[in-house]
Computed example of a mutant assay.
Amino acid sequence: MFRRRRREQPEAVAEQRPAAPTRESGPWDADEPHPDTERVDLGGLRLPHNPDFDVRLASVGDQHVGVVAIHGDNTLQLQALAAPRSSGLWDEVKTKIRAQAKGLEEREGPFGTELAGLLKTDGGDRPARYLGIDGPRWFLLAVISGPGADDEAVSGAFVDFVKDVVVVRGDEPMAREEPIPLRRPNEQSGGDVGDERPGFNPFRRGPEISEIR
């Protein structure tokens, strides 16, 4: 399970106070003003600390493409994708999801239109909610699944988690819907393992994750 890191960024000079956020909540873009709270740095995503969640990297093969936060019998899956500068991806992604997962209906949620319903799995029907957030040149997909998906007391904690996520798109050219690269907390951007920070456990590999492209 992830542990909290000391600070998201080095100590700033006293005179250089961060600008106040212009919105009540995120997900935040790394380049916009956002609350300076303790987060876990995974490269393309910075995640808020919640000691109740067991958070693991999710992969396709050897590539880290998302994270899964586990809380009891419920999970939150997060994927950040590169998006065009001119338009968002959620309307397009919704169509793809509904073509693959029958029984999902549109409804209004905390981030606008979302998809909700029952997914057929090997263990039976499983409640699920798909939340899509279009950002500047990125798209964040959040999937809440499990018996608590429609229970506000359970899913509300996941929604609050998503509201404090920071997406780090970077300036590199990326293809449409390409996963924004993630890394282990103790790895440098080049892939080298850096110094272990106090409070981090050895990183456990998470479940395989299905691509939405």
Rank of each mutant, 00 (worst) to 15 (best):
F111I: 02
E108P: 00
T113A: 15
G109N: 06
G135Q: 11
G117C: 06
F111Y: 05
R107F: 08
T113R: 14
E114R: 01
I133S: 07
G132T: 05
R126K: 14
K120A: 12
L115P: 07
L118K: 05
E114D: 08
D134E: 07
F111A: 06
D134C: 09
G117D: 08
R129E: 00
G124M: 02
G135S: 14
P127V: 09
A128Y: 02
D134N: 12
L118A: 04
L118V: 01
G112C: 04
E114H: 07
G117Y: 01
E114G: 03
G135C: 13
D134H: 08
D134T: 06
R129K: 07
I133N: 05
R129C: 01
K120W: 01
G109E: 06
G112Y: 02
T113M: 13
L104G: 07
G132V: 02
E105Q: 11
L119S: 13
R126W: 05
L119M: 15
I133K: 07
D122Q: 15
L115R: 03
E114N: 05
G132Q: 02
G124F: 04
A128E: 04
P110C: 12
G112A: 06
T121I: 10
E114V: 02
L104R: 07
P110N: 14
R107Q: 15
G109Q: 04
G123S: 15
L118T: 00
P110F: 06
D134R: 03
G135L: 15
R126T: 11
A128R: 06
G117E: 07
L104K: 06
R107Y: 13
E114Y: 01
L131G: 05
E108D: 11
L104P: 04
E114Q: 12
A128L: 08
T121G: 12
K120I: 06
G124Y: 02
G124P: 03
A116E: 00
E105M: 06
T121V: 12
P110L: 11
T113S: 15
D125N: 07
G123D: 14
T121Q: 10
E106A: 13
R126N: 11
L118N: 04
T121S: 15
P110G: 14
I133W: 08
L131M: 14
D122F: 11
G117T: 07
E105L: 05
R126Q: 13
E106H: 11
A116C: 01
E108M: 08
L118D: 03
I133F: 10
A128H: 04
E105G: 08
R107K: 15
D122Y: 12
I133R: 06
L115V: 10
E108I: 06
L104A: 11
G112S: 08
E106V: 08
R129P: 00
D134S: 10
D134P: 08
D122V: 15
D122E: 15
P110E: 14
D134M: 04
L115G: 11
G109M: 05
L119Q: 14
P110M: 11
G132A: 07
E114T: 05
R129Q: 03
L131Y: 10
E106K: 09
E108W: 00
R129N: 01
F111N: 06
G135V: 09
A128Q: 09
G124W: 02
E108F: 01
G132R: 02
E105W: 01
L131H: 13
L131D: 09
P127L: 10
E105D: 14
Y130D: 11
K120P: 03
T121E: 09
F111D: 05
I133Q: 11
G132F: 00
E105Y: 03
